[in-house]
Every structure is written in C-alpha cells, then in structure tokens.
Design a binder for these strands. Structure first.
Lengths: 186, 186, 186, 186
DNA sequence: TATGAATGAGAGTTCATTCAT
DNA sequence: CATGAATGAACTCTCATTCAT
C-alpha cells in the first residue's frame, strides 16, 4: 500500500505538471505552483524528479507512450488503411490539445539535448514505423515525411483546438490524413 | 543618414532577437544575449523597444506582415486556385522555420493579452479572408477552418523543417493545401 | 520554535532595513545591502516581504504603532497636560532619529499611493485625536494644526538629532510642546 | 546677449530641477525628465552641471542663499526681536514648501559628503549667527539649538504645508519662533 | 555651444534547487 | 519519506553619464 501511495503522489505531481505546462508553457510554471496545486511540499517533487526538466521529460514520455499505445491498438484492430484512419482519428483526438502542447514544449525545451530527445521519442517512432511499413511502404511517402507530417499535424491541432469543436477537428484531421496517406502517386 | 543608421540598429536588434527566439524560445533568450549578439549595449535595446515582450510583438508583426504580403502578391498574380497554391508554396516556404516559430511563440506568450494578439493578426486574417472569398466561398470549408488549418500547417512545418529539405517541404505543403482547398464537397 | 526563528529572521530584516533607510534614505539602500547586513540571502527578503516598498510600509507601520503606543500609555498615565508633556517627551525621544526618518521617508515615498498612506497612519491619528479631545478641545488649536505640528516636530528632530544630545533634545521638545499645547488664547 | 541666453538656460534647468525635486524627490526625477521639461537636450545639462548631484547642490545653495538674504534683510530692518519675528515669518513663508523640501533632500543626499554639505550651508549659518548674536546671546538658547530648531522648523513646515493654509502656517510659525526666541530663562 | 543616441553598472525581483528538520 | 525556509544566480529594466556630431 505504501507503494501505491507513493506512485499516487508521483502521478499526482506529473498530472498536475502536465496540465499546467499545457496551460501556460514550461517556463511560465513554477515549482511552487506545481507543489501547491498537487498538494505536496515543494521538496517532495525532488524526491521523485531530479529537476524541473525531468518532469517535462517524463510528461513527454507519457504523452508519446499514449500515442504509441493508441497507434498500436488502432493498428492491430484495423484491417484497411481506411479503417486505420477512422480509428486513429477517434482515438487520437481525445485530450489532443494537452498532449500536443506537451509534445511541442518538450520538442522546444530539449532542443539543446538532442540525445535525450531522441531517446524519449524512439519508442513512438518505432511504432509509427510499423504502421508505415504495413500501409505505406512502396508508396511515394517516405517514412520521414510520414512521421513529420503526422507529428506536425498533431501540433497544428494545438492551434486549431481553440477555434474548432471536437467534431470539426476530427473531420479535418481525417481529411488531412486521407490526403497524406492515401494520395495518388505523384 | 543618422536616420538610416538608427533604423539599421533597430533592424539589427529585431533580426537577432527573431533568430534567437526561433532557436531557443522566448523565455530562454536573455536581453544580455540579444545585446551581445546584436553587438549593441543592453540599454540600447530599450531605446527601440519598451520591453522584451514588445520585441516579440514586433517580431510577430513583421512575420505576419510578411505572410500577408506574400498572400496578397500571390493572390493578385494567380488566376486559378491551382496557380494560387503553386505560387503560395514557393513564396511561403522561404525562411519558413524561423517564421513559423515566431508565430508560435507569439501565439503562446501573448495568450494572456488576447486584445494585442488579435490586433496583430487582424491584418493577416483579413488577407486570408480575401483569398477565402475568391476561391472557397460556397464550398464546405468555413473561413474559421481555412484560417486555422492554414496557420496550423505553417506551424507544423516548424517540426518538419528540421527533418525535411526545402523541396520535400514544398511538395508536402502543396499536397496538404490541395487537400484542404480543393477537396470534393462533403 | 521554528515559528520563533522565522519571526526572528523577519525582525532582523526589518530592523536592518529601518536602520539603513534612516541612515541613507529609501532609494539609496539596495536589497543587496539589506541582505548583506541582515546576514540573509537576498531571496529570503522576498519570503517575508512582497517588495522593497512593502518593507518601508511595514517599517512605517511599526514606527507609527510605536508612537501610538507611547501616546496611549502616556495619555493614560497623565493627569494633567504638564504631566502629559513630561511623560511624552521622555517616552518619545527614544530612538527618535531613526523613527522620524522612517516617518519622513514613508511620507515621501508613498505620496503617490494616498490610500495606503492614510490607512497606515489612521491608527496613529486616532490616538492623537483622543489626546486632543482630552486636553485641547475648546482651545484655539485645531486638531489639524495639532496633528501637523506634532508630526512635523518629530520630523524636525531628525535634523536636530545630529547636533544635539538627548538631554538638550528633550529640553527643546518640551519647550515646543508647551508652546503649542499650553499657549494662551489668541 | 549670448551671456544672457546662457544664463537663461542654466537658470531654466535649475528652476525646473528644483520644482521636480521638490515634487518627487531626488532619486525619483531622471535627467531625461529635467531635460524634457526644461526644453533642453540631455547633454546640455552636462554643459552647466558636472553631475546630477551638482544640480541638487546648486539648488540647495540657491535656497540657502535665499534664506540668508531674507534673514539679512529682515535682520537689518528690525529694531526688536518682535519685529524680527514678524518680518521673518512673512518673508520666509513664501515658497516655503519648495524651499524646505530642497533643504531636506540636500541634507539627506549629501550626508555622505559632509564637507560639501558644510561648505554649502556655511554662509547661511553665518547669517544666522549674526541674528543670534544680536538677539539671543546671553540667553539660555545655544547657537546650535537656535540653528537646529530654526532649520528643523522650516523642514517641519514641509509636512504642514499640505494641510494648512498660508495664514495658519504663519500663525504657527510665529508661535514657535516666539516660544524659542523669547522664552523665559530656564 | 548643444544635442540625443548609445551605453553598462546596478537596481528590484523570480525561482529552481538544497538541506536541516 | 516529506517538507518548506533559505538561497543566489540570473532575469528584465532604469538611468546617469559619455561622446560623436
């Protein structure tokens, strides 16, 4: 039970931090604020995380893992690319604005430590690769393009999320995905 | 000539700041750094800009104005939507990574001062509106969607720009634009 | 005990600041200096005070409260106006130079925030009012005059304090008080 | 005429500075502000004054000289101490609030350069001495007390000036002067 | 003589991190 | 494990002073 409680506290800190980072940006959130909102002592944060940057890293990892998990699930359940797109859109739009903000922050803040960045996204990339290999290999879409566009699109949604409802977002995302993944040769 | 020199210095500060902001993010760049790289005294920055935020505002304004100008030019020179897309892609990709980063930073940092944000982008939006009204009115794309996607795409390119060459970027951007602007009804 | 220690540190900062403000003026004292002399970190000051101005406010409050307390005590113990004057002089001359300087600084620095100023001195003024009503009501001294002169005299002592010993100061203060408080009609 | 114009400019700077210092305090007035209000270039100030402190010194000198002049005149025209007091009050109350503020600022700001302070007030003190020697020598008022109280009173008026009209001020000042200068032995 | 663009030292303030309890 | 008081490095911003014109 102590173990459970401990995990509880770490999760609480991480979730609070993710929410605040997404709302205000990395530098605009102080550890005081995280501690206050997570209802733990400021020192406690350092029991679970080495540094503030470390919290963002774990946030990003969690988001990427979530994406990876979604992709894996959707991938396993989809017989055709159309089905894949449909399922992906539904699965991915959930909490998309928080998730995409975290991805973006992480991308920006860790730009000086490429190694850490690459390590954190490698799992995510690997899953994308499997999707790519099943559905797109041999098309004129390169993996790098596939990865960039997909990731970029999620980020773009950060902007759109404020002006569009969830339904519109799904419709739009679907259109763009179809356009990228199913386009005619040339 | 003094006037010229003066403008020179302001431009130098602004360009340096834009580059650094794009590289590291707004909060990660100090005025000391801007001053050092622009080879001016720290105090000089305050001769031309009221505050650090003001530098970002003028950066964003300059970027938005650039986009607006591109759109206007491309718009005037294009007879069809195909031509428009072709011209837009070529005109817009230039320096896209710096520009899109600035747009994103400004979007994030000014999120607490909506009024200033809206004022800065209003010109840009108005030009988009004219494009929309010429080519897309009556289609099932709403102006809000058009604006959101287009702006989002430019920002998405921020991610892609690091992994893709200019040619690939153009190809991709073109595909997405076609997909958005030319799609079948429904 | 932690509580005691905490109060200790705040007191130490406040006392150091009051001494330095009195010696050099508000603007001529830096937070670095206060921190150094109070033997605390610069950041520690901000644990206890919101801003530099806030330190002056609390300094002033403490001085005014001291005056008020002195007045109240002296007032309660004095049967006649002569006794009142005697007791007041003795009680008020203690640390008069620091106290009067703080009053003056606060008067000057808060002149742009009248509300805060009035709030801080209201207690002090109220006590003066009770003295006035007991001893001077019906005389040709108005309350405003009484208040102005008394406060002014304390400030004037700021000048004198450097050239006169405590005994001389008491003698002088007594003379002026008698002159104000006991003068013949007209 | 060039000479006249030059003097004009220096006077304009000095008068503007005195007014602003009195209104806002020494440190709260910037040279930019003085230059703007005096309608001269910022650099021009340094043609006439070595430093900002120098402006305050000359302001103080001018105020002290004014007092000295008043004292001398009043002194020469007065046959008795009563007449002296009457004349002094009338002559001294003019512009008293600006004058006393300047004196106080100078007193505070130059406290670290005693020599300059003493030099600036020596003339003023000498005139006071002549008054003292004519009217008070042999009384139980020491010169130091006389000087301190008189100067202090002028400063105290800084406080009072905001709450009292000129007539009340004169009445009050007269009372205090009588009290100091005419008191019974002991 | 007159100017104001340019400057950098130093101000007040914030906050990630440490550590004694 | 859990805490929050304490810290100082680093931030943005101000302004007296200089100097080329």
């Amino acid at each position: 039970m102590a173990q459970v409680k401990k995990e509880d506290k770490k999760k609480r800190i991480l979730n609070t931090a993710m929410r605040l980072f997404a709302e205000k940006g990395f530098r605009n959130v102080s550890l005081d604020e995280i501690a206050r909102e997570a209802k733990v002592g400021k020192g406690t944060i350092y029991v679970y995380f080495d540094s503030k940057m470390r919290i963002l890293e774990e946030s990003a990892k969690s988001v990427f893992n979530g994406f990876t998990e979604s992709f894996r699930l959707v991938f396993e359940r989809s017989e055709s690319i159309d089905e894949f797109i449909d399922n992906l859109v539904n699965s991915v739009v959930e909490n998309i604005s928080v998730k995409s903000k975290i991805m973006m922050l992480f991308h920006k803040e860790s730009s000086y430590d490429r190694e850490k960045y690459i390590q954190t996204i490698s799992d995510y990339k690997e899953t994308l690769k499997r999707v790519y290999e099943r559905f797109l290999k041999g098309s004129d879409v390169s993996f790098e393009e596939f990865h960039s566009v997909l990731t970029g699109i999620f980020m773009a949604i950060y902007m759109m999320a404020e002006n569009l409802g969830e339904d519109e977002m799904k419709k739009m995302l679907k259109r763009v995905l179809i356009c990228i993944l199913k386009r005619e040769k040339g």
